[in-house]
Design a protein around this nucleic acid. Structure first.
Lengths: 231, 231
DNA sequence: CGATACTTTGACATGGGTCAATCAACGTGG
DNA sequence: CCACGTTGATTGACCCATGTCAAAGTATCG
């Protein structure tokens, strides 16, 4: 019972935790569940590093520079695991884009629990590396790409992550606002909006309401995105 | 003998590998050593993910967008471990800033070897998380900070990493060129140079030759760097 | 159906890029 | 050890992409 409540199938799958061992129960004891309403911050205590598993919903990890300047460091969708730690230089918070369910572990305790299971540690390494590789890609975009390339790349990558594409076309329900997109791409909402308009004019994007988006030509987006393998 | 050649003390320490077990010898068998001259790329085959240990020297991990635009994704100094994987979107290369010695593992093989040693896996997790956290900080800088803040933050962070600071003052020998600094901060060499000049005028920086740098007031740099905890 | 928040569009300002010229560091050969 | 050449750094003038400020438009929700 408790096992079903805390350690959902998705998490067991994510960390490669064989349900038949008693391990899930050990993890249950150290897990904290948070149900976060859309727009609310997860009440994380990151004086110590934590591992967060996004069981349902979608979240943004936001870093803040001085002067209220926010930079979204990553989006994390259902099924993702992320590591969050405090930082002397910037403050971080994890905010729900839609109603979300998070399973939070003190990282130290989690690793203690998982020590006997190399498979779990390896799954975790893989997840953190995925986060690292995405972050590197973001650094390239933020450091060296134009607004148009960033927006096209954003849509392209999101279409891949949300796996809703079929032979070059794709419909998405963006869980994030224009502000979020801007905060993720290091742009203002106005610039994001203008780039959306240009993509519409180029026939690479149609919108329907605020959040629904139709991408008729994913390949075209990739070409605009300034990926080194496309020119 | 071979053990001393391949698995140096630094690496054993880095991955928390107890020298008394026979483990080091197993790692030796799968390790590849590369001595890279200043300015040369490591001949990494990243069709599969690799782990690289920087045994001596200093390196830059460079990502490339289309059109020859380089973004340095991270600097890695002696003692660092990094994970590098290919990417459909951007190409990456690891280049030596000074003559360097790298110990390279196929990541899969490394993890296979380390499976029985949770301590090694944990050490690896810690290192990768460090890389992730640095990369997040870089994303905040690239996305939301001014040229002056980026340059000040760069010097501040480097002074911490190279541990050459004494009560607010610090002398550094920068292993990287102005171009490298620009490629790391998402700026041009000219902008980096102008910011250096402004910092000199503000009494926060003195230079001596191309690479030697004196930072008389680290706290002042931190204040300029736009870190959220300093205003 | 009206209120409110979000988005789009426009006019203008500006930080940092680009291009070009000068200057300084460093290595090399005499 | 010095003159010279090469490469990298600095400075200046100008320009453009994106930020800023303001207004109008439009989803969405009670």
């Amino acid at each position: 019972m408790a096992s079903n409540v805390v350690m959902d199938e998705l998490l067991c799958d994510a960390i490669n935790c064989p349900p038949e061992t008693g391990l899930c129960q050990k993890f249950e004891q150290i897990a904290q569940i948070h149900n976060i309403a859309r727009g609310q911050d997860a009440p994380l205590d990151i004086t110590r590093p934590v591992l967060v598993f996004v069981s349902q919903g979608a979240t943004k990890l936001v870093g803040r520079a001085s002067g209220q300047r926010d930079q979204i460091v990553a989006f994390h969708l259902a099924g993702d695991i992320l590591s969050v730690a405090g930082d002397a230089l910037h403050s971080y918070r994890l905010t729900a884009l839609s109603d979300s369910r998070l399973i939070v572990f003190d990282e130290e305790e989690f690793l203690e629990c998982a020590a006997a299971e190399p498979a779990i540690l390896r799954a975790l390494i893989e997840r953190i590396e995925t986060a690292l590789h995405r972050s590197r890609g973001k650094a390239i975009s933020l450091g060296r790409k134009s607004a148009q390339e960033r927006v096209a790349g954003f849509l392209y990558i999101l279409s891949k992550r949300m796996k809703s594409s079929t032979n070059g076309k794709c419909v998405l329900d963006l869980p994030m606002s224009r502000r979020d997109i801007g905060d993720s791409l290091g742009l203002t909402i106005e610039t994001v909006s203008r780039q959306f308009s240009e993509l519409k004019a180029a026939g690479l994007l149609e919108t329907c309401g605020r959040s629904r988006v139709l991408l008729p030509d994913i390949g075209g987006l990739a070409r605009l995105a300034g990926h080194s393998n496309f020119s």
